[in-house]
């Protein structure tokens, strides 16, 4: 993520390197800002950069820009971590739910070979 700025019109602007943060992460982060901001996203042609603009909605004012910057910075890192956990554990979670909701009579014990 590049530097986060407020432009002369009061819009918050920043860019995201989509080779680092993909759509899953970007959408999860921006989802939680969508109650307070109108969000515009635009991909740079021939690059991995996506430009994001946040326009405060009526009734919302940016009282603490520093806090917003910290939140964005933390949220991108946290959601990327959540994505990693989800990816690495998807199969075991499916297995867990399948076993939990299967008829217990149909359980087959695993033979573990480490």
């Amino acid at each position: 993520m590049t530097t986060i700025n407020i432009n002369d019109d009061g819009l918050v602007e920043f860019s995201i390197d989509t080779s680092i943060y993909d759509e899953w992460v970007i959408e999860k982060v921006l989802y939680w800002l969508s109650a307070d901001y109108i969000i515009t996203r635009c991909n740079d042609t021939n690059s991995y950069i996506q430009n994001v603009t946040l326009e405060p909605k009526d009734g919302h004012c940016i009282t603490d820009f520093q806090q917003l910057k910290e939140k964005l910075s933390n949220d991108f890192i946290d959601y990327k971590n959540r994505q990693t956990i989800a990816r690495e554990t998807a199969n075991i979670r499916d297995l867990l739910f399948a076993k939990a909701f299967a008829n217990s009579d149909d359980f087959v014990e695993f033979t573990f070979k480490d």
């Binding site: 075991i92 297995l95 867990l96 939990a100 909701f101 359980f107 014990e109 695993f110 480490d114």
Partner: peptide, 19 residues
């Protein structure tokens, strides 16, 4: 410590109990 936890059945039972 293993790709599939040794206690997977135990985990499944706990999840089933919560649900």
């Amino acid at each position: 410590e293993t790709p599939v936890p040794h206690l997977l059945d135990n985990m499944a039972t706990r999840l089933a109990t919560r649900k």
